[in-house]
């Protein structure tokens, strides 16, 4: 991607604070993600993990603190922000495929409009990506004709088509029927294996154990614990993490 391969983190969040009205949803968050690292963010609902994920490409503005991506400070609104966002892939809980465009058009829109690729190049690459996530045969259909699992895999292909430096996943499996969760997680796991830098907000502990380099546990708008998966799951240090894990593991 770039020639810069020194030890500097790819994504750095420093002193992030955000309020929704009186609600202090993010409190003094410091977090660094290295190139190629897969970070899974877990925590109870309302802990601020989704909001945190959305601040990284400024779908949510922060009130205080600083976010840098590949050494560049996240700009405010405008063309600069759009350019930076194009390097940050995002996968949403509700897929958000463009309802009026075919699967293929969904994947080629960004490369054509933002990267200024030719239609032919963009389509060639799009078909490769759709094959890779296993929905190549659906290219000419509209989103509403696909299952949730298929739609989410298309959404991943759409993000990958921009050749992002980092991928954000905001609860990518929470809206899926149970039998479709694995098909999405499999794609994500293989992405992780291929060295993609990923920040994943999820409740899927299996994925966290299997694919993450690090687990970040959030509660009440703060990062409470940050550890390797094995350490975190077998030996959490905070009471809140212990409490959270006991609830979901008994579940």
């Amino acid at each position: 991607m770039t020639s810069r391969t020194n030890g500097e983190p790819l994504v750095r969040l420093a002193g992030i604070n955000k309020w929704f009205g009186d609600l202090h949803v993010l409190q003094d968050i410091d977090l660094s993600i290295d190139r190629g690292e897969v970070v899974v963010v877990i925590g109870p609902s309302g802990s601020g993990k989704s909001t945190l994920c959305r601040t990284i490409n400024r779908l949510e503005a922060i009130d205080r603190g600083e976010i840098t991506i590949d050494g560049q400070r996240l700009p405010e609104e405008g063309k600069e922000l759009a350019r930076l966002r194009s390097d940050v892939g995002m996968v949403f809980q509700s897929f958000n495929l463009f309802a009026h465009k075919t699967i293929l058009e969904n994947v080629t829109l960004g490369p054509i409009k933002v990267r200024k690729q030719s239609k032919a190049d963009a389509e060639k690459r799009a078909r490769e990506l759709l094959d890779r996530v296993g929905v190549g045969a659906q290219a000419d259909k509209y989103p509403a004709q696909l299952s949730g699992g298929q739609q989410q895999r298309v959404a991943i292909a759409r993000a990958l088509a921009m050749d992002p430096k980092v991928m954000l996943f905001d609860e990518p499996t929470s809206a899926l029927d149970p039998e479709m969760i694995n098909e999405v997680l499999d794609v994500m796991t293989s992405l992780a294996r291929d060295g993609m830098t990923m920040i994943v907000v999820t409740h899927e502990m299996g994925f966290a154990r299997r694919a993450a380099n690090r687990v970040v546990f959030m509660d009440g708008g703060r990062v409470v614990e940050s550890a390797e998966p094995e350490t975190f799951f077998t030996n959490p240090t905070s009471d809140r993490a212990k409490d959270f894990l006991s609830k979901i593991l008994n579940h």
């Binding site: 490409n57 779908l59 063309k79 759009a82 350019r83 930076l84 966002r85 194009s86 390097d87 940050v88 892939g89 995002m90 949403f92 509700s94 958000n96 495929l97 463009f98 309802a99 829109l109 960004g110 409009k113 933002v114 959404a155 759409r158 993000a159 921009m162």
Partner: peptide
């Protein structure tokens, strides 16, 4: 709103 968010997260400008 998710449609616009998805478009913006791809790096599309406001007018795009």
């Amino acid at each position: 709103a998710g449609q616009a968010e998805a478009a913006r997260s791809l790096g599309l400008t406001f007018s795009q």
